[in-house]
């Protein structure tokens, strides 16, 4: 499986796709963080729970884009036809999917770290520029990057498994986007008791930013790992069973 992992890592490194995604993610992090930090009235930014609105976009967008990385790792191969030479070289498809899970998880960790770093750096600077004291404490500075990396590492296999099930690239990317930014917001607003168990909310919980609404970080990471395992397993079964066109 080392051979397949090395091949998958080279796939990630040898196109500009990931760089484009990384820049797109950074742009969205800056936009969301700056809009909230600069335009919310100062009296809605003075407590730690208020400032969640600023910093939460780091881990959220890190997880989203890690999901996209995972989804593209499989749907891109199906779209461009490289899945054929890939499976000819490694007809034991389970190994291919496992290597993809690991490789996209590693890439996801980088995305998570970059997203959280950008959100904390830019958010803190913007708040400081307005004279609003930053309410992040010592544990936040550990949990935010660690949680952001864990959330992104686990969202990559979720995207991958979903991509292996749906196979269509655009459908998979749209589904991930809609789920994280639309469906989960509705769930959290209208049925918060259930919404906090959703995979995006579980990812956000790992950072410990919003303990009132979300699960405890340890529970969040366990739940998200479960989602990742189930989705990746379903995607593996689909890849094993289906014919390649």
């Amino acid at each position: 499986m080392t051979a397949q992992l090395r091949a998958e890592l080279l796939k990630h490194r040898s196109t500009f796709t990931n760089l484009g995604l990384l820049l797109g993610m950074l742009g969205l992090v800056l936009l969301a963080v700056l809009l909230h930090a600069l335009s919310l009235p100062a009296d809605r930014l003075d407590s730690a729970s208020d400032q969640v609105e600023v910093f939460r976009f780091g881990p959220l967008l890190g997880a989203l884009f890690a999901g996209l990385v995972g989804a593209l790792a499989i749907t891109g191969e199906i779209r461009h036809g490289t899945i054929r030479p890939t499976f000819l070289m490694t007809p034991r498809r389970g190994r291919v999917v496992a290597a993809k899970v690991l490789a996209s998880g590693l890439v996801g960790i980088v995305f998570g770290l970059v997203a959280v770093g950008a959100a904390v750096g830019v958010g803190s600077a913007a708040l400081a520029a307005r004279g609003v004291p930053v309410m992040l404490d010592g544990s936040d500075y550990t949990l935010l990057p660690a949680g952001g990396m864990a959330a992104a590492a686990l969202w990559a296999p979720i995207g991958l498994g979903l991509g292996a099930l749906l196979r269509n690239q655009v459908a998979t990317l749209v589904a991930i986007f809609l789920w994280l930014f639309f469906v989960e917001n509705l769930l959290l607003d209208f049925v918060p008791g259930a919404g906090r168990f959703a995979p995006g909310a579980a990812a956000a919980a790992i950072t410990g930013l919003d303990p009132d609404r979300l699960l405890a970080p340890a529970l969040g990471v366990l739940l998200l790992a479960l989602y990742a395992a189930v989705t990746a397993a379903a995607g593996t079964i689909a890849a094993l069973r289906r014919d390649v066109a």
Binding site: A3, Q4, R6, A7, L10, K11, S14, T15, F16, T17, G76, H80, G81, T82, R84, P85, T86, M89, T90
Partner: peptide
């Protein structure tokens, strides 16, 4: 059956690694 954004050499290297 190629990724349009990958070089010919990298395409072969990916297969060779696997």
């Amino acid at each position: 059956d190629f990724h349009p954004g990958r070089s010919g050499r990298d395409h072969l290297r990916v297969l060779a690694l696997a």
